[in-house]
Design a protein around this nucleic acid. Sequence first.
DNA 1: AATTATAGTATCGAATCGAAACTATAATTA
DNA 2: TAATTATAGTTTCGATTCGATACTATAATT
Lengths: 185, 185
Amino acid sequence: MSDTEVNDVLERLCNLLRMETRAFGQKYGLQPVQIDALTYLTQCNRYSNTPQAVGEYLGLTKGTISQSLKVLEQKSLLRKLPDEQDKRVVHLTPTAKGKKLIENAIADKSLAPALANSTKITELASVLRSTLRKVQQMNKRKAFAACHTCRFNEQSKKGYLCGLTQEPLSAQDIQLICREHEYPS
Amino acid sequence: MSDTEVNDVLERLCNLLRMETRAFGQKYGLQPVQIDALTYLTQCNRYSNTPQAVGEYLGLTKGTISQSLKVLEQKSLLRKLPDEQDKRVVHLTPTAKGKKLIENAIADKSLAPALANSTKITELASVLRSTLRKVQQMNKRKAFAACHTCRFNEQSKKGYLCGLTQEPLSAQDIQLICREHEYPS
DNA sequence: AATTATAGTATCGAATCGAAACTATAATTA
DNA sequence: TAATTATAGTTTCGATTCGATACTATAATT
């Protein structure tokens, strides 16, 4: 009864967010998918900023996303850097211009002010987090969540360590989205 | 601090819902926008089932949405009925096949099971409702909400009445989305 | 050394999308 | 009442997304 209502509200919020993304993009000659891709690239870690990962994150094929990334590069919103170890791999890093644009895109949305001064914000965050987690576990795709909730993330006196790559992670690092993320079982 | 997190979670939920809508549509040769339009038409009232309204609801131009509706009609998922009073207007009503398809689309999503058994569902619903309301009031578009929260909706002993059209509304009617909806000031 | 797998790009056809032109009907105004 | 203006919807055009497929280059496996 009440959960179909939550469902409807969430669906409608999605519609509205998409409309706003479309409207914002139009001011800069950008498509919604381009905004989405660039947003992801400002939030993901160094293991996850590849065309492949962007495609998986957004549920699009690599061929499709490749075209959108080409446009973003042509508009100087991101740069492509070849990987040092694996020469097949390309890393995508937003330029200052690209980062600024995404900042504006987020600020332009009516979601942020709608959440401001919301009294039960902490509780809302907690319920939404667990909902997202269930959805992620349910749909059989990669979770694409931040390292601090990952089962590979280890904490010692020296700081954080990724058990998968065996690389140390900073406090900022563990807030970033990782394509290798797995929830603890 | 915590509200940017809510923002991020909501954005990600939107991505995932869109991916699922795309995947579901692909099974039936339908595009995400077509699923969205048909979903709306199963939820809106008799004042709001026109091409114009669908376009406004989804933030698309009438020319654009007209093409998507043509496809839905060709696939026998909806029918077009001319309005009796105003001969310019067309009413769109989902067929049984169309309704069934949307039922399946909603059931297929991982959101419903993710919400099931959620303990704080009532509280979540309430916070989300007020968030949606703020977003709707903020972005200067029509709200497209249900009559029971509308300032034109009047309740008497005999039942409900729309103060705008002066027509009586049933208990089912006031649950439907209306394009003329306005929140009380 | 040969095979297979993977990351990314390029190309094609089908579809969305916005803009603009167009038709038909309704509402307004002179 | 006739002319004008506004509105609902469709159609057409060009730019873009999208999936599928083929392709190149590099890495991993056998």
